[in-house]
Design a protein around this nucleic acid. Structure first.
Length: 491
RNA sequence: GGUCGCGUGGCCGAGUGGCUAGGCAGCGGUCUGCAAAACCGUGUACGGCGGUUCGAAUCCGCCCGUGACCUCCA
């Protein structure tokens, strides 16, 4: 595998050359959504970031097993209030639905949205509720190794004991003593020996409707366990890449490391990757802050922050124009700017097939190709890769006008490069056919275009402009080009 | 309070100790009956104050602003 892909490893806080454990196989695990409400822009950033990584790894020739979980159990919502109620079950009661009905509804919604955004389906999409046994087995191992204790039917992870042999807090750069000094005293934690300890298994209260039998109690697994259990099951005890949102870094991923290491006695993830947050008005977009925009709203424009709807590819391109480790601020202006840029890019790539090869090449396509791959190899720097594609656009237009030429070999190479990066790696899709497929409508439009052409030939500009303006009012824009008049639907 | 990050031209957003990021907008031009579209060209910006250096927006210090995590969160 000849490449120099470097990835920023959250664990070491450095870019590191990526070397898979068992090349050409790569194991990739990404924390997916908790399916209890509609997908929003933040979820999509996670999905598109790691979809692009998945695509690039495939492009480099790796055989990737991409596992993205669906969280449908656990994740205590409000331990502070002592209810110990599970997010899924709370929403279920609210809507008078079975928990699994909620799960099903939102799971399908996520999958649909992600498909519309042209993300490739993961190799495996495991659900936590389907892996209760595996989670219990892992708890057993952790207890056998002496890193967990049971209290009243609940099992907690023992940070202090773990920290004697291993180091807790490496991923997030925290020290156990500092954390102890700064811990808020929360109620409802009397069972824990230390405030830092976290639940591996929780005994279910009467009101808790998602529950499973276990040797400790009828209950449910702790917040972080599913990822440890499922990643181990499908990718092995030690695997290559684990990804997720930056907000999961602590405590979720920190606990995941501790659990897994405690159960198997060795490291489990080699490269940790975290995508940064989408912000809106400078603040993190989150369900808990009630400032999120769902994908449905983005597509339709039905949100007070939205001036209008945006296409899936527009959203995908917008996200890719920022580096995944930077925060990205949402705005209509930014979205509309990338919409125009995307249109320009896709139009140019469509035009690639119209370029005639010349006898010899008057320019070199090597620099743009090399720079583009350098960018992707540099921690998946999609903004720079895209900048290189725009350089490619400039070349395409020079070639179209005959100001420069490429010999057949170079043209083929250049064309393949542009299409591969754009469609295969970045996952952008060709422009939708804006012309109507309705032959009657198409014919009518052609008649009007021809009439207008006649009028213009006769210098009857009043008539020609009337046709143009009236069509515009109907949402059809006429575009006069050298090759003739075309039309596009607008708005 | 603790930990970590960010502050780039009108907007979004890369990057870097000296070598063009890019997109959008603006401006100029080509094309056009006019316009739109399309295409070409064009912008020495890096929060403030000090310091290191031949040279810093890029390194260091201080300050200001802002955000993330520390509770579920992509």
């Amino acid at each position: 595998m000849e490449h120099k892909l470097s990835l920023y490893n959250s664990l070491t806080r450095k870019k590191e050359l990526f070397k898979p454990l068992h090349s050409p196989h790569v194991g990739l695990y990404v924390c997916g959504p908790t399916v209890y409400s509609e997908p929003h822009l933040g979820h999509v950033r996670m999905a598109i970031t790691f979809d692009t990584l998945f695509r690039y790894l495939l492009h480099l020739g790796y055989k990737v097993r991409y596992v993205r979980n669906i969280t449908d159990v656990g994740h205590l919502e409000d331990e502070v209030a002592g209810t110990g109620e599970d997010k899924i079950s709370k929403k279920a009661k609210l809507e008078q639905l079975e928990p699994m009905e909620v799960v099903q509804k939102y799971k399908l919604m996520f999958q649909e949205v992600l498909q519309i955004l042209n993300t490739l389906p993961p190799s495996i999409e495991p659900q936590a509720s389907g892996h209760i046994i595996e989670q219990q087995q892992m708890i057993r191992r952790i207890m056998d190794n002496g890193y967990a204790y049971e209290v009243n039917g609940s099992v907690y992870f023992d940070i202090e004991t773990y920290n004697k042999k291993y180091t807790y807090g490496q991923l997030s750069g925290r020290k156990v003593e500092d954390m102890l000094a700064n811990t808020r005293q929360l109620e409802g934690q009397q069972e824990k020996r230390s405030p830092l300890d976290f639940a591996l298994w929780k005994k279910a209260g009467d009101e808790h409707i998602m529950r499973w039998p276990s040797e400790w109690s009828e209950g449910f697994p702790g917040w972080h366990l599913e990822c440890s259990a499922m990643s181990t099951k499908y990718l092995g005890e030690t695997f290559d890449i684990h990804g997720g949102g930056l907000d999961l870094l602590f405590p979720h991923h920190e606990c995941e490391i501790a659990q897994t290491v405690a159960s198997q006695g060795k490291d489990h993830v080699r490269y940790w990757m975290h995508n940064n947050m989408i912000t809106i008005d400078g603040q993190k977009m989150a369900r808990s802050l009630h400032n999120f925009i769902t994908l449905k709203e983005l597509f339709t424009g039905s949100h007070e922050k939205l001036e209008r709807g945006y296409t899936p590819m527009n959203i995908r391109f917008f996200l890719l124009q920022a580096h995944y480790r930077s925060t990205l601020d949402f705005s209509n202006e930014a979205l509309q700017a990338s919409e125009k840029g995307l249109h320009k890019l896709l139009k140019a790539i469509e035009n690639l097939d119209r370029i005639q090869a010349g006898k010899q090449s008057t320019l070199s396509v090597v620099p743009v190709i090399e720079k583009c791959f350098e960018a992707l190899n540099d921690d998946l720097n999609t903004p720079i890769a895209i900048a290189q594609l725009f350089e490619g656009v400039r070349l395409i237009n020079l070639l179209l006008e005959g100001k420069e030429t490429l010999d057949p070999t170079d043209l083929e190479r250049f064309s393949t490069f542009m299409k591969n990066i754009c469609y295969e790696v970045l996952g952008l899709q060709p422009l939708e056919q804006s012309l109507t497929h309705d032959s009657a409508e198409e014919g009518l439009l052609q008649i009007l275009v021809d009439l207008r052409l006649d009028a213009r030939k006769n210098k009857d500009f009043a008539t020609s402009d009337l046709i143009r303006d009236k069509l515009n009012e109907l949402g059809i824009a006429l575009k006069d080009t050298k090759e003739g008049t075309t039309w596009e639907r607008i708005g």
